[in-house]
Simulated assay, not measured.
Amino acid sequence: MKKTVESPANRYYGGPNSDHFDGKLFHNPGGVLPLGFRDVLRWQFNGLRSAWPKAWPSPFPQAKPRWRVTGEGLSVTMVGHSTLLLQVDGLNILTDPVWSERASPVRFAGPRRVNAPGIAFDDLPKIDIVLLSHNHYDHMDIATLRRLHQVHDPLVITPLGNDAIVRPAVPMLRVSAHDWGDTVEAGEGTRIHVEPAHHWSARGARDRRMALWGSFVLETPAGHVYFAGDTGFHEGRNYRHMAEKYGGFRLAILPIGAYEPRWFMKSQHQDPDEAVEAMRLLNAGHVAGCHWGTFQLTDEPIEEPRQRLHAALDREGVSRELFRALQPGEVWQVATV
């Protein structure tokens, strides 16, 4: 675990320079920086934002997951957006947990969920580990992290600098902060690797790119699992690297939503067509599609990500059963590859 040391230039992290840290800010090597405030205004006033329903209930009932999944078993349950419960090798792992009503720094404004969490908080099994990909409000929800600490006391694994945001708000929470390429031992049979994603970070207007973002690879006796976090396609570079490094994946969890308008979102959020290409590049046997259908963050209609995903799969001759756009409460017992 890297120890976070604040510096005058960066309120969250101070450490040695690297290919993705210049001593003050993090960046994507060979990548694209997030656009600026003028571009945000241009997007916000483009008049192209689709109308989402105020409520879009999931067709699946709230799940009540088994306590543990062992052996060759691998289960994934969609909670909503990028929050999923992974059960593998006797571990219960949450990705980017958000149970709050809004993905926002305030309770009275900001994106509001249009469906209930796919697992009621009180029905969660004992949570061992939280994978926290970055600090945007639809991924890092302090209220949920506080509840998880009080009830489950999980270990939170996150990229560099995010611990400096979480610890003051939840002082006794166990947080382990890591650079890309670091590995965490998670029990007897599972290792968790922190890996690159093409994204950015901010909690406000003055802390852009001061904390690192990332993806995760779970190396388990039941197979490899990849959680992309939030990412742009980035010419498939990170996906190729993951396949070369790990050989392939039994399951990948990939974002498929929040991609319009493309001129603004392309570098930070991949679209469904790119997600299907990512499946091939990763050598992934199964893919769970996330980051759609719960919080309206961008311009596309609520059902479009799934429709475009199905069209891309059909075009590429890939079974829709292998790449599912998961909805809250949906439970997938992932077959072996």
Rank of each mutant, 00 (worst) to 15 (best):
S133C: 10
G31K: 04
S58N: 09
T190N: 09
R250C: 01
E321Y: 00
H136R: 10
N17V: 14
I142E: 06
P117S: 05
Y246M: 07
H269A: 14
W52A: 07
W56I: 07
M242L: 14
R208D: 01
F323K: 03
T183C: 15
I302Q: 12
R237G: 04
G187I: 11
A197C: 07
E72I: 09
Y226W: 13
S319L: 00
P65E: 04
R280I: 06
P57K: 11
V337R: 09
W180C: 03
H178A: 03
M265T: 09
P53D: 12
G232I: 02
H269E: 08
V331K: 10
G14C: 07
F108G: 05
G247M: 04
A202L: 09
T4F: 01
P255D: 06
E72Q: 15
T70S: 12
K54P: 08
H152T: 04
L25F: 09
V79L: 13
F37V: 14
H234V: 03
G90D: 08
F249D: 03
S215N: 08
H234N: 10
P154M: 11
G329K: 03
V151M: 11
R112S: 13
T231M: 08
H310D: 15
G73M: 05
L148Q: 11
G31H: 05
A275I: 04
A325N: 07
Q307I: 13
L25K: 10
R113N: 11
Y12C: 00
L85H: 05
R38I: 08
E185C: 10
V98L: 12
R68T: 09
R262N: 09
G90I: 08
V32Y: 04
E219L: 07
K54Y: 14
R42C: 07
D207L: 04
P111I: 06
G285T: 01
Q333E: 12
E244D: 14
P53E: 11
K266G: 09
N28T: 15
H178R: 08
F323M: 14
V106I: 15
L132W: 00
P97R: 05
H310C: 13
H149Q: 15
V114T: 14
I256A: 01
G181M: 10
G257W: 01
F26R: 00
V287L: 05
G71H: 06
A186I: 10
F60N: 13
Q62W: 03
V69Y: 03
T231Y: 09
V79K: 01
W180R: 02
L132R: 00
G110F: 10
Y239R: 02
R240H: 12
H134D: 13
N162S: 05
